[in-house]
């Protein structure tokens, strides 16, 4: 089993992702430079957070044209597992690999804090170890995480159960005061229609060890690892 962490110019959560996978969960992990044209037979690819290309034009808009994105497109077409965190999520929506868009936060500010999330769909490779409605504590750190899409698309997204994480209160309650950035329908993370591509604004790699205040993020990576293991042995 091999994980790949893509490094764009301006990525800054790449080492955090690498650390969680390689050191905390001890799985084979490699960095993939954005100019590479193949994914070196990785089983799962992570697009990490950061400010790829300085967030010029729109967040994720330039990274989308990096050579590695064609390989990722092909990988996704073959059912490959891809996870975009924060800027990685922004790159996936700009590429059209996930629906919607990420607008500036409704507060007009960069927000860096812990948030509570409700796991809305536990039938994905990223969340199958969670119980339905489980509440996890994972931090956000972004200026443009305000998820947006037009209402017919939202209906489809809901119907296909593509909403994976929603912002909520400590007991899973939904209320505007627990939505930090104005995201439509309190959406914090979504999956593709086949559930093999996940995009989320919160940073699970920043809370995968107790010393960091929460280890809830580890469960997402652990879900992935177990899912891959089961598939290999099955």
């Amino acid at each position: 089993m091999k994980f790949g962490v893509v490094v764009f110019p301006g990525s800054n959560c790449d080492y955090d992702c690498y650390h969680v996978l390689a050191n905390v969960l001890q799985v084979n992990t490699v960095f993939l430079w954005h100019e590479e044209k193949d994914l070196r037979s990785c089983d799962c690819v992570i697009l990490p957070g950061g400010f790829s290309y300085g967030d010029y034009l729109r967040t994720g808009a330039i990274a989308r044209f990096s050579p590695i994105m064609q390989a990722i497109r092909d990988f996704i077409a073959q059912g490959g597992l891809v996870m975009g965190i924060c800027n990685g999520f922004q790159i996936l929506v700009e590429s059209g690999l996930l629906p919607g868009a990420l607008l500036p936060n409704i507060t007009g500010r960069f927000i860096c804090k812990y948030t509570y999330l409700r796991v809305e769909n536990v039938h994905t490779p990223f969340t199958h170890l969670f119980t339905p409605g489980e509440v996890v504590k994972i931090p956000i750190a972004h200026h443009q995480g305000n998820f947006f899409m037009h209402s017919p698309d939202l209906l489809t997204l809901r119907k296909q159960e593509q909403v994976v994480f929603r912002y909520c209160g400590p007991h899973g309650e939904r209320d505007p005061r627990f939505n930090p950035n104005g995201s439509l329908d309190d959406i914090a993370g979504i999956a593709s229609a086949n559930f093999r591509v996940l995009g989320m604004m919160p940073h699970p790699e920043r809370c995968a060890e107790d010393i960091l205040g929460s280890h809830d993020g580890r469960k997402i990576f652990f879900s992935l690892i177990q899912w891959l293991e089961e598939r290999k042995s099955g």
Binding site: L103, P104, N105, I106, T107, G108, N146, F148, H150, G182
Partner: peptide, 10 residues
């Protein structure tokens, strides 16, 4: 139209 513009509001 219909897309919120926080910079405009500020």
């Amino acid at each position: 139209p219909g897309v919120f513009d926080p910079q405009g509001v500020t």
